[in-house]
């Protein structure tokens, strides 16, 4: 990998995948069929994975594909199909015009507020030309792209990491208990 930076090429792809992500997200929230919605959401996640890579977070991009698009969304699809919800049913899933307009207004409000806050609170901008010398080295010979993430994760945030693993364990146990078919002993 050479470190030559092509601003136009980079910018073009950044915008491209960004727009695809937005378009896919809009399609995602407007689909009636849960399966279609899930597929469009997976598309958003792929786009985001591309952007992660472009932002020099290759490891996160890989995990995004593996864990999110691969594992979590598959679970979603699995549940949708398990419950046989594949077809848009008669009951209108999307709310009426009033709530939709209200939701749009609220969304715009949040958008505006977040924009204002981000603009006023986050100082600094990195120049695209200097991107390669930034805090996160794109790749180094010994640790590759994983070491910059793994370092803090297993040093400063080790406790949080372990707690998260316990959380996962608890979630697995909980999911099994909740999802288990209730036997005659539990039936009331």
């Amino acid at each position: 990998m050479d470190n030559t930076f092509h601003p136009l090429f980079y910018g073009f792809h950044f915008y491209l995948f960004g727009l695809i992500a937005i378009a896919s997200a809009i399609l995602f929230v407007t689909r009636k069929s849960p399966v279609a919605a899930a597929l469009w959401l997976i598309n958003v996640m792929f786009c985001l994975a591309v952007l992660y890579v472009m932002l020099d977070a290759q490891f996160i991009g890989a995990i995004q594909v593996l864990v999110y698009a691969g594992a979590i969304m598959v679970v979603f699809l699995f549940v949708v199909m398990l419950l046989n919800l594949g077809q848009p049913d008669d009951l209108a899933d999307i709310r009426g015009t009033g709530p939709r307009l209200a939701a749009g207004a609220v969304g715009l409000a949040i958008l505006a507020e977040v924009m204002v806050l981000a603009r006023s609170r986050i100082q600094g901008e990195y120049a695209p030309a200097a991107a390669v010398e930034l805090l996160v080295p794109a790749a180094d010979a010994v640790g590759g792209v994983i070491a910059p993430v793994a370092g803090p994760l297993f040093r400063e945030h080790l406790l949080a990491f372990e707690l998260t693993s316990i959380l996962l364990l608890a979630a697995i146990v909980g999911a099994v208990v909740i999802g288990k078919k209730q036997g005659p002993a539990d039936a009331r």
Binding site: G11, Y15, A25, V29, P34, A37, M54, L91, D93, V106
Partner: peptide
């Protein structure tokens, strides 16, 4: 590309909020 990333993030978040407010299906 920081500004664009944050803007994209805000837009996607907003779309998610609008989805929460407009959909009735628990899975969606």
């Amino acid at each position: 590309m920081l500004a664009e990333s944050l803007a994209l993030s805000a837009v996607l978040f907003t779309i998610g909020v609008v989805g929460v407010l407009t959909r009735r299906n628990a899975i969606i």
